[in-house]
């Protein structure tokens, strides 16, 4: 069924996927800040350690985001499929919850904002 090119193709894609998993894992530290974006604009920045509830207005209505116990989750959303609610709580840097219909992104950011931990000379 599979030709040689098929097998090479599968191998290359699996390798690419594995490498990008690794790259993401390396750049991912413990989460520090919860960033909420609506339509690409940053609407709120909160420490993940402080309990808070945010209400973000989107084209469909209000998305409610809860920060509690060092984790962030979408508590309630006006979208039909509720994928953002079902995603559950996130806590790692780089993790995110996306609500496409209401154009809301909840991201967790790590310690260093510029992506550099240290510079050696």
């Amino acid at each position: 069924m599979l030709t040689l090119s098929d097998k090479i193709l599968i191998g290359v894609f699996l390798l690419l996927s594995g490498l990008s998993f690794l790259a993401l894992a390396v750049f991912r530290g413990a989460g520090q800040t919860v960033v909420v974006e609506q339509d690409g604009k940053v609407m709120a920045r909160r420490s993940i350690a402080v309990e808070d509830t945010l209400r973000i207005e989107g084209p469909l209505g209000v998305t409610t985001i809860q920060i509690a116990g060092g984790r962030a989750r979408v508590l309630d959303a006006p979208c039909p499929q509720q994928l953002c609610v079902k995603t559950g709580a996130i806590s790692n840097a780089g993790a995110m919850v996306v609500c496409v219909p209401n154009r809301v992104v909840v991201r967790v950011e790590g310690h260093s904002k510029d992506g550099v931990d240290a510079v050696t000379r």
Binding site: G18, F21, E37, G94, M96, V98, V100, V105
Partner: peptide, 13 residues
């Protein structure tokens, strides 16, 4: 839809 670079974290999946 989601003008955030963070969405590329989904690429490996």
């Amino acid at each position: 839809l989601v003008r955030s670079r963070g969405i590329w974290a989904l690429l490996p999946v």
